[in-house]
């Protein structure tokens, strides 16, 4: 004999927990890619500042190199958005 109220509560709980899991997965996507992008930019950025101090003309080029890894976090953000909505 199955209690209908109990079943309803269980279904609601499962749904809520699924939403929570989804949000956690989205957060993981952003956190992981964010850390990765930051780590990549950390090295490039410090080298870029050094290079600019030596020669101002390379500013455009090194800005470009510094922002290249940012695509990683954008992908993370896109994946998170697709998961959430």
């Amino acid at each position: 004999m199955v209690d209908p109220v109990m079943t309803l509560t269980t279904v609601e709980m499962v749904e809520a927990s699924q939403i929570g899991m989804k949000s956690l997965a989205a957060a993981l996507a952003v956190v992981g890619t964010g850390v990765a992008a930051a780590f990549a930019e950390y090295g490039i950025g410090s080298a870029a500042v050094g290079a600019t101090a030596e020669n101002k003309d390379v500013f455009g080029l090194v800005l470009l190199l510094t922002v290249i890894p940012e695509t990683i976090v954008i992908f993370g953000l896109v994946v998170a958005l697709l998961m959430l909505f």
Binding site: E70, T71, I74, F75, L77, V78, L81
Partner: peptide, 16 residues
């Protein structure tokens, strides 16, 4: 693929 996907930042950065 990666360069085309990169344009999705137009939306992602805006939404944040």
């Amino acid at each position: 693929i990666s360069h085309t996907m990169s344009y999705t930042r137009l939306v992602a950065v805006g939404l944040s």
